[in-house]
Simulated assay, not measured.
Amino acid sequence: MNIVVLDGMGGGIGSRIVGILKEEMPSYIEVYGLGTNSLATASMLKKGANKGATGENAIAVTVAKADFIVGSIAMTIPNSMMGEITPKMVEAVGNSEGIKIYIPILPENHHIVSLEQKPLMLQIREAVDFIKKELNLGDE
Rank of each mutant, 00 (worst) to 15 (best):
P107W: 10
M121Y: 09
Y32A: 03
S43R: 10
M121D: 05
I101D: 14
E91Q: 14
L21G: 08
R16Q: 09
L122Y: 13
I124V: 12
Y102S: 10
L115N: 04
A92Y: 12
K88G: 04
E97T: 03
K22S: 01
L21E: 06
A49C: 01
P78K: 08
E30W: 02
I124H: 05
A42E: 04
L122A: 15
N95D: 07
N50I: 01
E97V: 01
P78I: 02
M44F: 04
N57D: 01
E108D: 13
I101M: 13
A49N: 05
P104Y: 05
K100P: 09
I20A: 08
M121P: 00
I101E: 08
R16H: 07
V61P: 04
A64P: 06
E56D: 05
L39W: 03
A53S: 13
N79L: 14
L115W: 00
I85Q: 05
A58G: 00
Q123K: 10
K51Q: 01
V93D: 12
M89G: 07
L21M: 06
Q123V: 00
P107D: 15
L34D: 13
T62K: 02
A74E: 11
M25S: 09
I73T: 13
Y102N: 12
M121F: 12
M44V: 00
T36S: 10
I29Q: 06
Y102K: 00
P78R: 09
G52K: 03
E56M: 02
A92S: 15
G35Q: 00
R16W: 02
G19W: 06
H111E: 11
V70Q: 11
I101N: 13
Y28A: 13
V128C: 09
K47M: 13
K46T: 09
G52I: 04
G35V: 01
I73K: 12
G55S: 00
A49W: 03
L120M: 10
T76H: 06
G94C: 15
S43P: 06
I20H: 06
L120N: 11
A53Y: 10
I112H: 08
M89A: 07
G55D: 09
P87G: 14
V113I: 14
T86H: 10
Y28R: 11
V90Q: 10
I59L: 03
I59N: 04
K65D: 13
I105F: 14
A66K: 08
L122V: 15
I17Y: 00
A127H: 14
T36L: 06
S72I: 06
H110W: 12
P107Q: 14
I85G: 04
G35D: 02
E126V: 03
H111F: 11
I29A: 13
A74P: 07
A66N: 11
Q117S: 08
E23F: 07
I17R: 02
A74Q: 11
I77E: 00
K88Q: 07
N57R: 15
L39N: 01
I99R: 15
M81Y: 10
I124W: 07
P119S: 06
S96K: 10
M44S: 02
T62H: 06
P119A: 12
V113H: 02
M121I: 07
E24Q: 14
L39K: 07
V63Y: 13
M75L: 12
I20E: 14
L120V: 08
I99W: 11
